[in-house]
Amino acid sequence: MHERHTAKARRRRGQRLYLLIVLVLAGGLAWLQISRIHSAAGVVSGQQIAAPKEGFLAPEIQFTGLDGQPHALSEFKGHPIILNFWATWCPPCRGEMPALEAVYKAYAADGLLIIGVNQMEDSGKVSRFQEQFHLTFPIFLDKQGQAGATYRARGLPSSFFIDQKGFIRKIVVGGMNEPLIQGQVSALLGKE
């Protein structure tokens, strides 16, 4: 009599627990359906909002050429871009310049642009630096540091890898070596 009761209770318990699994599965599938992303491309790539974050559109910024002419990032839209915030006094910035120049030369034919945005230094100092390091990629001045602030470039150097559509694909804070830059550029150009 007692054994029959125990077996019955165990069977009832098993049924209740398996019902729980079915309910969890059904609820989970329902939540997957409700919360699924309707415009996959928009959310996966971080929406059409400009923000200094991977997956978002690169925010627009203004800067000044070494000749004093005003320029904007949007002028270069359509190119894969490495937007590099730097300063002459920053050792890792100096360290990565030869690598940036080498990658620029290697991939310029593929449309790659490297845009150096110097942080709050005068044009004479930056021009001398450009000559000393034989840099051929375009360098601009961010005199008030507004472009750097827009990109929250708190640490120098900070590099933003931007694809042809204007989305930020990768952010690297700190000095980069050539393989790292090449790897990211290959990904930008779809060469992997």
């Binding site: 729980l20 699994i21 969890v24 599965l25 989970g28 599938l29 939540w31 997957l32 409700i34 919360s35 699924r36 992303i37 309707h38 996959a40 959310v43 996966v44 971080g46 929406q47 997956g55």
Partner: peptide, 28 residues
Amino acid sequence: GWRAGSAVWGNGYRQSQVISLLVLVLAL
């Protein structure tokens, strides 16, 4: 379900949610 910037499978299903549901059912 409220996350942005997620990788998705198929018709907009987030990979992390699908994996979580499978792990949940298995662990349960």
